[in-house]
């Protein structure tokens, strides 16, 4: 009998996280044209736009931090790697540090969830409270703070530079002088 194979760090990370399925990182996920029927059959909220086919996030088939249709999941889900996962896979970031960031994100997400109106999904509340254009909103300050903290953290650690940032945040520039003692 052979020894069990070690679980790859990337698998440990993804099965502890699931954030890419929650709508915290993206509003939608792209489907290939030939996946529409399967996606509908799986109960995914398919959205047909003028130029692309997507399903809306959060994914209703997410069970805790794991996929409920893993063997039949859309190709985009199989392909997608967030920045955190890429850093772990490249050896640039220790798994323990990455798992710590997942826990922090989980706490920030829970803070948002406690203030979220019933039935509201993260993408829609983000579009409403953190608009990318026009005047900033001034309502729901507590929820907006929690959402800002979550989104800033995800922008920094989870979203890839090529994906851009979800949040327009003003930096108060740190002085360049001074290093920690």
């Amino acid at each position: 009998m052979s020894d069990p194979q070690p679980v790859p760090d990337g698998v440990l990370l993804c099965t502890s996280c699931g954030l890419c399925c929650t709508g915290a990182l993206h509003d939608t996920a792209a489907l290939d044209e030939d996946e529409e029927q399967a996606a509908l059959a799986a109960g995914l909220p398919v959205v047909r736009g003028a130029e692309r086919l997507d399903f809306a996030l959060p994914c209703p088939r997410l069970e805790g931090t794991r996929c409920g249709i893993y063997p039949d999941r859309p190709r985009v889900c199989a392909r997608y790697k967030c920045n955190l996962l890429l850093e772990v896979e490249s050896g640039a970031l220790p798994l323990a540090t990455a798992l710590g960031r997942v826990r922090t994100a989980g706490t920030l997400l829970a803070n948002v969830a406690t203030s979220l109106p019933a039935g509201a999904a993260l993408p829609e509340i983000r579009a409403h409270l953190l608009p990318r254009t026009g005047e900033p909103r001034r309502d729901h300050p507590a929820l907006r703070l929690h959402l800002t903290a979550l989104t800033a953290f995800l922008d920094r650690h989870f979203r890839k530079p090529s994906e851009g940032r979800l949040l327009d945040i003003r930096a108060i520039a740190s002085p360049s002088s001074g290093t920690p003692t």
Partner: peptide, 20 residues
């Protein structure tokens, strides 16, 4: 809100978010 070692702030009157 403290986020790890950083701070995220919201100036509620103006609506702007800040990272420190």
């Amino acid at each position: 809100a403290d986020v790890d070692q950083d701070v995220v702030a919201l100036q509620a009157d103006r609506g702007y978010c800040y990272g420190m």
